[in-house]
């Protein structure tokens, strides 16, 4: 196996979000379940300080991330039914949900891997949305409210969001071994995931 930092850099420069998702899928598919789940848990945990600063009264995400196994034993994939959040925090919640789905399906490689990648991708999106909303609130609000005429500056055009997205991608992907193996099983799982638009399986 080789280090992935070069691959990770290359995918940032030339790859699409689908390319990056599939690279992560391949990198995590053959990893032991504990390793794949830990990579996803650490990635999602990176957003926790931001969530805590915005919602100091909500302790449950920290409890969930401290021990997803204990959480799923009690709540399965359920989250606390607290009030609606902004778009960034909603993406974080989706990352938490995906992490729990990965945990519950830890023995199903395809579902576990898809959910782990969705968790990682969602929390990266949470980081990016958070800085985009602060840096260009007008464009963010247009996007969030569906004002298509006003939505000319997207998240992908925002330099601050791009910088944060880069940092988060390298923090996760840079530490993984490059996917080296090929198997019919992996390709079939990937094809199934593509058909689901890289969402939860």
């Amino acid at each position: 196996m080789t280090t992935s930092s070069h691959d990770a850099e290359r995918l940032l420069e030339t790859g699409t979000s689908q390319d990056r998702s599939e690279w992560l899928f391949r990198a995590l598919y053959d990893a032991p379940a504990d390793r794949a789940l830990e990579v996803a848990r650490l990635a999602v945990s990176r957003y926790l300080p931001i969530f805590r600063a915005k919602h100091p009264e909500l302790a449950w995400p920290g409890e969930l991330l401290a021990d997803p196994g204990a959480w799923t034993a009690e709540h399965e994939t359920g989250l606390v039914d607290d009030p609606d959040h902004d778009s960034a925090d909603t993406a974080f919640r989706h990352g938490l949900h995906a992490l729990l789905v990965a945990w519950v399906h830890r023995d199903d490689r395809a579902r576990r891997t898809a959910a782990a990648v969705v968790a990682i991708r969602s929390v990266r999106s949470a980081f990016q949305t958070n800085v985009w909303a602060a840096d260009d609130p007008e464009a963010f609000t247009a996007w969030a409210t569906g004002d298509l005429v006003g939505a000319r500056r997207t998240l992908e055009d925002n330099a601050a969001a791009a910088a944060v997205g880069r940092r988060e991608w390298l923090a996760v992907a840079g530490g993984l071994a490059s996917p080296a193996s090929w198997s019919a099983e992996l390709e079939a799982a990937l094809e199934r995931w593509r058909a689901r638009e890289h969402a939860l399986l």
């Binding site: 689908q18 959040h85 909603t90 993406a91 989706h94 999106s125 949305t129 992908e156 969402a199």
Partner: peptide, 22 residues
């Protein structure tokens, strides 16, 4: 419906919306 957020996947990438349903 929850707030719209960026799914970062699908045919329109991060320009698209995802809305979780409770």
């Amino acid at each position: 419906e929850e707030s719209r957020y960026s799914a970062g996947s699908g045919p329109c990438g991060s320009n698209g919306w995802q809305v979780k349903i409770r």
